[in-house]
């Protein structure tokens, strides 16, 4: 991956695949660290699976015996002197909660830290692909906070799908304005 925003897209796609109704993507930056939290309320994974997901020879895909999404992401964090953590829970009884939270910390000043890149494209791509999921995106840096919640948008849009071209263009402009 050439930019962290592509890793974020790839990891958030696992939440989509886990059947999540809500996905939170939270970026917090200070002078030294970029912390990225990707949290979902999908089906979660049993502990044996959690222990194996950083192994490239563990995958849910059926077309290959390797899965590189999580190993790539973990490497991207650890090669900067940062850290990677995955916490997951499956339902243990009817009505129980489930979900997965992936947290990565990147040391921004390390020479091997990839640029964050086009995170706006990552958000719009996720919404385009899964308009039925509610995404909450936030990015805090330099005392600023960029924020988007699809649940808030849905209230105003009624039955207009979130992946309509007009809406996707609005999302892009709305986020770009907040960054500028």
């Amino acid at each position: 991956m050439k930019e962290l925003s592509l890793n974020i897209l790839d990891i958030a796609k696992n939440s989509v695949k886990a059947g999540a109704a809500n996905v939170i993507i939270k970026l917090e930056e200070n002078e030294d660290d970029l912390k990225v939290i990707i949290a979902d309320d999908g089906c979660g994974m049993p502990s044996e699976m959690v222990a194996r997901v950083t192994d490239p020879f563990c995958t849910t895909r059926t077309t290959r015996k390797v899965g590189l999404g999580i190993p790539f992401y973990k490497l991207a964090a650890e090669q900067t002197g940062g850290r990677f953590e995955i916490v997951s829970k499956t339902k243990s009884y009817e009505g129980d909660t489930s979900g997965t939270t992936v947290t990565a910390v990147f040391k921004k000043k390390h020479i091997d830290c990839l640029p964050l890149g086009d995170v706006i494209s990552t958000v719009s791509t996720l919404i385009q692909g899964s308009p039925e999921i509610d995404f909450v995106f936030s990015h805090e840096f330099d005392g600023k906070k960029v924020f988007l919640s699809t649940a808030e948008m849905r209230e105003l849009l009624g039955d207009v799908p979130l992946n309509s071209p007009e809406v996707l263009m609005w999302i892009r402009d709305y986020l770009e304005e907040q960054y500028n």
Binding site: L6, R61, G129, P165
Partner: peptide, 21 residues
């Protein structure tokens, strides 16, 4: 848009289709 596609540049291709169409 799996890991292989994303790392090879599928995101800008997808967005070009969405906007182009």
């Amino acid at each position: 848009m799996a890991t292989c596609g994303i790392s090879a540049g599928a995101r800008p291709v997808l967005n070009a289709f969405v906007e182009g169409v």
